Lab assay of single mutants.
Amino acid sequence: KKVTINGVEIKFNNPEEAVKFALELAKRLNLRIEFHGDQIKIE
């Protein structure tokens, strides 16, 4: 399963991993996060 985070394609074994990764990243950098299907936007 491929997920695009800020235009960067990252391959994950499952979608939950991708979501956890994105949330952790957003929390660490104190950023806002948006989900659009397989696209995750962090700003």
Rank of each mutant, 00 (worst) to 15 (best):
T4N: 06
A18V: 09
L25Q: 02
H36F: 12
F12E: 00
E9P: 07
L25P: 00
E17T: 06
I10A: 02
D38Y: 08
G7F: 07
V8F: 12
E16P: 05
N14I: 07
L25S: 00
H36D: 12
I42K: 01
F21W: 13
T4K: 07
F35Q: 03
K1M: 15
F35L: 05
R32G: 02
A18P: 02
G7K: 05
E43I: 15
Q39L: 14
E17H: 06
E43T: 15
I10N: 01
A26Q: 03
Q39R: 10
D38S: 07
K41N: 10
L29I: 04
E9D: 07
R32H: 06
G7M: 06
L23V: 07
R32C: 13
N13K: 13
A22H: 01
L25V: 06
I42T: 01
N30M: 08
K11R: 12
I33L: 07
K11E: 12
I42W: 02
K1D: 06
E34I: 14
E43N: 11
R32F: 05
L23E: 05
I5S: 01
I5L: 08
F12P: 00
V19Y: 13
V19S: 03
A22N: 00
L23A: 04
A26Y: 06
N14L: 10
E24I: 09
H36T: 12
A18W: 13
F12A: 01
D38F: 12
K1E: 05
T4R: 05
P15V: 11
N30R: 11
R28A: 08
V3T: 03
K2C: 15
V8N: 04
V19Q: 05
G37Y: 08
N13A: 13
K41G: 03
I5W: 13
V19F: 12
G37M: 10
D38H: 06
V3E: 03
A22T: 04
I42H: 02
E43F: 15
E16F: 12
N30G: 11
H36P: 03
V8A: 04
F21N: 00
K11G: 07
G37R: 07
P15A: 12
A18R: 03
E17L: 10
G37H: 08
G37F: 09
K20D: 04
A18E: 01
L25N: 01
N14P: 08
G37I: 07
F35V: 07
V8H: 10
P15Y: 14
G7Y: 06
T4D: 02
K20C: 15
N13L: 12
V19T: 06
H36V: 13
E34A: 07
F35D: 01
K2D: 04
F21D: 00
T4C: 15
K1Y: 15
L31D: 00
Q39D: 11
F21M: 04
L31P: 00
I5K: 02
I33M: 04
F12D: 00
K41A: 07
A22L: 14
K11H: 14
I42P: 00
K11P: 06
D38Q: 06
G7Q: 04
E9S: 11
G7A: 04
